Simulated scan of single mutants.
Amino acid sequence: MGTERRPVVYDAEGGDDHERQGTVWTATSHIVAAVVGSGVLALAWTVAQLGWAVGPLVLLGFSCVTYYTSTLLANCYRYPDPVTGSVNRQYIDAVRCYLGRKSVLLCGCAQYMNLWGTLVGYTITASTSMIAVKRVNCLHRSGFGVTGCEVSGSTYMVVFGLMQLLLSQLPSLHNIAWLSVVAVATSFRYSFIRLGLCAAKWASHGDVRGTLAGAGIDAPRDKAFNVLLALGNIAFSYTFADMLIEIQDTLKSPPAENKTMKRASLYGLSMTTVFYLLLGCTGYAAFGNDAPGYAAFGNDAPGNILTGYAFYEPYWLVDIANVCIIVHLSGA
């Protein structure tokens, strides 16, 4: 008597499983930590390939599609009824219930390929940020001479991999909402720093750069490839379906988990879309069609805009942004 009764999850066989104490805000933190990742750093280049006419519309369109599919997947957490049915603890359990066992292999491969691709992207981006910290400090000491400031990324990739091995020993997602909160806080910090740097560059030349059609490329084949790559960057920047069911499995009820998850998806995607529009459009206005972040050295390859090429002063601010990227991707 006098103790609060906590909601308990029951698995498909009806047995006790684990307690869930997640709320709409912890779920939103998990979503933002997963969605706002390495893709945000290439948004200026992405918008540059699509132009002012199409770029912002594509960002909004992918946001709407992602929210719609997220609401559909949120209803698959329980089967057969989305409110009173048996719980599907993982994405693959929902596939088995709704699509049948024949679809498990195909959807499972798709899920793990997506997770593998995300891990590769996070590893490369985190190691690039580690390199950027060393490069920016080297440029500052050498008076911005490029010679001698190039660093190999292999060692830093191994370091990031070891960090992930250590973090993988933490308990399940139900017990580490704090890690997502830290990841979200650092992601907002480096996003604001990036936004401020781009806004300062934009203010320095005073005009809105870029064109309605985007970057002009002589070869149609190259233009088509860059447009498709830009669309892929945006799609990658919004994806979190491969972990939506696992996030939903942290939520307490009542209210019904699918209702809470839909609200969390709306809040999380709304926040990220506003950030994406601000970062992509401000970066494009600042750099124009040379928006990738390597433009300062004449290299128009797409990439991280905080690597120390586009911005290397104030060096301490660029260092802080890159450290925040490392912390965010470690937790994400």
Rank of each mutant, 00 (worst) to 15 (best):
A33Y: 14
L50F: 07
S38C: 10
T26Q: 11
A34Y: 09
V24Q: 07
W25A: 10
G51M: 05
T46D: 10
W45H: 08
A53D: 04
Q49C: 13
T46V: 13
T28P: 02
G37F: 14
S29D: 03
A34K: 05
A33H: 14
A33R: 13
D17T: 07
G39H: 09
D17A: 02
V40Q: 05
S29K: 00
G51W: 03
Q21F: 09
G22L: 12
S38W: 15
G51Y: 08
T23Q: 01
W52C: 03
A27G: 13
E19R: 01
V32P: 01
A42H: 04
S38Y: 13
A48Q: 08
R20L: 09
S38P: 06
V40M: 13
V32M: 08
D17F: 05
Q49R: 07
Q49A: 12
W52N: 05
A53K: 01
G51S: 03
H18F: 15
G51R: 04
A34Q: 12
A33C: 15
A27F: 14
H30D: 01
W45S: 10
A53M: 08
V54A: 07
L41K: 03
T26V: 11
A27V: 13
A42N: 05
A33V: 15
Q49D: 11
S38T: 15
A27W: 10
H30L: 03
G37K: 11
G39T: 11
T26D: 12
T28C: 07
V47G: 05
V54G: 00
G51L: 04
T28N: 01
W25Q: 08
W45D: 15
T26K: 05
S38F: 12
G51I: 07
T23H: 02
V36E: 04
I31H: 03
V47C: 08
W52E: 07
V32G: 00
L43F: 14
V54I: 15
A42Y: 03
V36I: 15
D17M: 02
I31A: 04
I31F: 06
A42M: 13
G39P: 12
D17Q: 01
V40A: 15
A42C: 10
G22C: 11
W45Y: 14
I31P: 02
A33F: 15
Q21I: 10
V24F: 04
T26H: 08
S29M: 12
L43R: 04
W45C: 03
T23M: 01
A48Y: 10
W25M: 13
L43V: 08
Q49I: 12
G51D: 06
S29G: 14
V47T: 14
W52F: 14
G37S: 12
A48W: 11
T23I: 06
G39N: 11
R20N: 10
V54C: 00
S38M: 11
A44D: 04
G39Y: 12
V35A: 05
H18I: 11
A34T: 15
L50H: 04
T23E: 04
W25N: 01
G39Q: 09
V24S: 04
A34F: 12
A44M: 02
L43W: 09
A44R: 00
S38V: 13
L50I: 09
V40T: 14
A53G: 03
W25V: 14
T46Q: 08
V35N: 03
E19V: 13
V54Q: 00
Q21E: 11
I31V: 13
L43Q: 06
V24T: 14
A42G: 15
V35Y: 09
R20H: 10
I31W: 05
W52T: 08
E19N: 00
G22V: 14
V32N: 00
R20T: 15
